[in-house]
Design a protein around this nucleic acid. Structure first.
Lengths: 180, 180
DNA sequence: TAACTTATGATATACCATGTATCATAAGTA
DNA sequence: TACTTATGATACATGGTATATCATAAGTTA
């Protein structure tokens, strides 16, 4: 059996990182900040992760695994609006971590991971080519624009409900990509 | 009269920074890198700028001053496609610096400046409210999505001409924001 | 041209964050 | 209970930031 201390330490580090990333820019967070908030020794951090990006990617990877199956139907199904609203509901149910990863100072790094994995998944699951648009542009633009709208939702319109935000994403992002 | 050495030093620093930002991520560039390429003493850098972001913002500010009058007509005029193509022509004529500032590792910082100044200018010049969209969302989304498409153009489709890219920006960004 | 002002280069220095190494100890496993 | 090992504390090397100082060279002014 794996040592229980490992999971405990990693969970403490991840929780501390998410708290900090919600407060300030990712680049302004130091390893010393993270271990202080996690109540973990400084050297211990590097026994688990190569650097603070390693910790970030670990947390982001797990979220993206869950997120992808919810995200891609909007680019495949007929009812794009329902798919967009479903995406917003998924996000809304995991607001804390999504806010930290998508709207915090780590957005560029997380977006890169999400874009790459979306492309890989879109290729293997045979996503239909968007009419009149290069495939890679369609993906990068969809991911970037969607994350931007979600960040706006978190930061400037937290009371807006999933249906409204989903409709906005459908209008501003999904529909223009899908329709020729 | 102002000392000619000042302008010479600042020009050398700006040119060096633009070269470096085109090569690698902004966060991976050190002040020592900049002064080495500019052939300027290390301490001299801090006599002109507080830090490397200060130098970046100085260059970005001057470009944005020129850019804003070309960018906003797309959100005001009737012929949005022509305005989008005009924007691409403007960018194409200043490809080196635009690529460095918009598609390099400093994109988040430059985007923040551009978004703020777009909002300020849109308010003072009385931009028509986008139908069914909060004003701030319309601006942040337009800026973010446009910069994303430009970055894709620079990095993955450098041979595409201004008319094609302008049409894409019009279809993916401007038209969805303008039409209710 | 000469006298001045000042921006610069070189150097030294303090500070902080990263990342590694070591060792005693405490926690978990068998 | 005996073991394995993850941890905390500490020390240390490295590298980037930022400031201070001083002689010099460059530019300005008379």
């Amino acid at each position: 059996m794996v040592d229980a201390r490992i999971g405990k330490t990693r969970a403490a580090l991840a929780a501390a990182m998410l708290e900090l990333i919600a407060e300030r820019d990712f680049s302004a967070i130091t390893v010393a900040d993270i271990v202080a908030k996690a109540d973990v020794g400084y050297a211990t951090f590097f026994r688990h992760y190569q650097d603070k990006e390693g910790l970030l990617f670990d947390a982001a990877d797990r979220l993206i695994d869950e997120l992808l199956p919810t995200m891609l139907p909007a680019l495949r199904d007929e009812d794009t609006r329902s798919a967009s609203i479903a995406l917003c509901r998924f996000i809304n149910d995991r607001k804390a971590i999504c806010r930290a990863l998508f709207a915090g100072g780590a957005e560029p790094q997380v977006r890169r991971i999400l874009t790459e994995r979306s492309m890989a998944r879109a290729e293997t699951t045979g996503l239909p080519d968007p009419p009149g648009l290069p495939f890679r542009l369609a993906i990068t633009h969809s991911v970037r624009a969607t994350l931007g709208i979600l960040a706006w939702w978190f930061d400037e319109a937290p009371d807006m409900d999933c249906e409204e935000v989903g409709a906005i994403i459908d209008r501003l992002v999904i529909a223009p990509v899908r329709k020729g």
